[in-house]
């Protein structure tokens, strides 16, 4: 009964105004075979050395069997958004919220995006980069992806690090697409790391 009442009340609720203030989440992007085929596959082959292996906490990539490119891209994008504090599940745009807060001094925009600035001022960019790495790793573990180590230069060809600034969207999406290509591609031949 409670839920019938709830449903009735929701129908009466004026959602039209909310459609702008509370924005709908972006739908999951579906890529065509041609779009995927047009992507340049990153080179993940390298000869492991003890020195390279020491960097696997920083330089790693993901793979999951039986996963198509669109799913992998959606998963990686979700983990990227959670890790950087961006909006993913709808409601608004964290980047624009910060923009208007800083450029126009909008009081209502001073929320979570602002709060982290103080911690950032204290701990610095390196700590923020480390947190982001760990966040992506944790999120992808939950999604069932395996983690593999990589040599630094090859890793840099399709990954980015993010500290206090924000990598621009176009560059970001390009990197995430390449990561999705690897994540949904052939199973790596190298040793799987701990999550």
């Amino acid at each position: 009964m409670k839920y019938i009442l709830l449903a009735g009340a929701l129908c009466a609720f004026p959602m039209s105004a909310g459609a702008q203030a509370i924005k709908a989440p972006e739908p999951a992007r579906q890529f065509t075979e041609a779009e995927v085929a047009a992507l340049e596959r990153p080179d993940t082959r390298f000869d492991e050395t003890p020195e390279i292996a020491l960097g696997y906490d920083k330089y790693f990539y993901f793979h999951r069997a039986d996963t198509d490119f669109s799913t992998a891209f959606h998963d990686i994008s979700e983990c990227d958004a959670l890790s950087s504090g961006s909006n993913f599940y709808g409601g608004g745009d964290a980047g624009m919220t910060s923009y208007y807060a800083m450029q126009y001094g909008v009081a209502g925009a001073a929320g979570g995006a602002l709060g982290s600035l103080f911690a950032d001022a204290v701990f610095g960019s390196a700590e923020r980069r480390k947190i982001r790495r760990n966040n992506v790793r944790q999120c992808m573990e939950y999604k069932g992806y395996s983690r593999y180590g990589m040599e630094r230069e090859r890793w840099q060809a399709f990954h980015f690090e993010e500290g206090l600034g924000r990598v621009k969207d176009e560059k970001r999406t390009g990197f995430l697409m390449k990561q999705a290509l690897v994540a949904s591609g052939p199973k790596p031949e190298t040793k799987e790391l701990l999550p």
Partner: peptide, 26 residues
């Protein structure tokens, strides 16, 4: 269910709770 990382914390989740909360991957 899931929500955005409003305060840019460390990403995680409540561990499974018998009879209340479970996970199928994420």
């Amino acid at each position: 269910g899931k929500f955005d990382n409003f305060f840019r914390g460390t990403v995680g989740r409540m561990p499974a709770v018998a009879g209340v909360l479970a996970y199928d991957r994420d």
